[in-house]
Simulated assay, not measured.
Amino acid sequence: MITRTEHGYALGHWEGIPTLLESGRKLTPGEVRAAVCRANGLNAADAGRELHCSKNTVYQYWQALYFKLDCSDVVVAINKMIEVGALHRLQLLLIVVALFGAAGSGNDDVLRPRAQARITARTGRTRRDELCEIGSGPDGLVPSTTHLGVLA
């Protein structure tokens, strides 16, 4: 069942918000509810039952959405609504909150840049420095004459 939320309307994992577009046109609550139904995979007849209106009314909502969003395809219209913030997945917000919550947990692996070397506890040097000491050539490799098969 479609429900009224603090900002708009939600069904399943999607929430739609009546929004003023850059063109000056506004997405109405009916249009947003029709888009939320479509984002959840409902066809016009099912959306009509969900919204307590006819499927022709749902078609009219979509025609208005196509005009206001300057497109003629459902996928393009939904993508444009996502871009302007009129439609978003509810689970995505939970993932973002979880990610930012993990960053503040004190785990240094989350905050360390990839290029930063980890210093080992037993020697106080980086792992790369330890590996470089294994060979006798540059960067820990055997001298290049050995690689070429030439022995001195």
Rank of each mutant, 00 (worst) to 15 (best):
V36M: 05
K68T: 07
A77C: 15
A34W: 01
G104W: 03
D109A: 15
D46K: 11
I82V: 15
A121E: 15
G101S: 14
A152F: 13
A34L: 01
L111Q: 09
G140L: 10
T120Q: 13
G41K: 01
W62L: 05
P29M: 00
I17M: 03
L42Q: 04
I95H: 11
S144L: 12
S72I: 00
M1D: 08
N43A: 04
Y9L: 07
L99G: 12
Q91R: 08
D70M: 00
E133W: 08
R114C: 01
A34N: 01
L90S: 02
E22N: 12
Q60N: 13
L151S: 09
C132Y: 14
L11S: 09
L69I: 06
N40S: 12
P138N: 10
D109S: 15
I2A: 07
G106R: 07
L11C: 10
P18W: 03
E50S: 11
R122Y: 10
N79K: 11
L65F: 02
R89C: 04
A64E: 09
D108Y: 10
D73M: 02
M1G: 13
G41L: 03
G135Q: 07
Y9N: 06
A64N: 14
E15Y: 07
M81V: 02
D46R: 11
G41E: 05
S72Y: 08
L148P: 00
N40V: 01
A102P: 00
V110A: 05
V84H: 02
T126I: 08
P143I: 00
T123V: 07
R114F: 06
E22Y: 04
E50T: 13
L65S: 06
L51R: 02
E50Y: 00
V32P: 04
L11D: 02
T3Q: 15
D46M: 12
K80A: 07
V142I: 14
G41P: 04
T123M: 10
T123L: 14
R38G: 01
C37V: 06
E83L: 08
T120H: 07
T126R: 05
G101H: 11
H88N: 10
S144Q: 13
I82K: 15
H13D: 14
L20R: 14
P18S: 09
V84A: 03
M81N: 04
V58W: 02
D70C: 07
N107F: 06
G149S: 07
I95T: 11
L141W: 11
L92R: 11
K26D: 04
H7Q: 14
G8W: 03
K26A: 05
S144N: 12
T28M: 04
C37H: 01
V74E: 15
L99F: 09
H147I: 08
W62K: 06
R89W: 02
N79S: 13
L11G: 01
C71I: 08
L111K: 09
L111A: 12
R25V: 01
W62P: 05
Q91Y: 11
I82H: 05
V32C: 11
G137R: 09
S136Q: 14
S105C: 11
V58G: 01
K26E: 12
L65E: 05
S144Y: 10
R89S: 12
A98C: 11
D73T: 07
R114H: 10
W14L: 02
S23V: 05
L94E: 14
G48W: 03
T120Y: 01
L141P: 00
P113Y: 08
S23H: 03
P29E: 12
A117Y: 06
C71Q: 08
E130Y: 04
V150Q: 08
G106T: 06
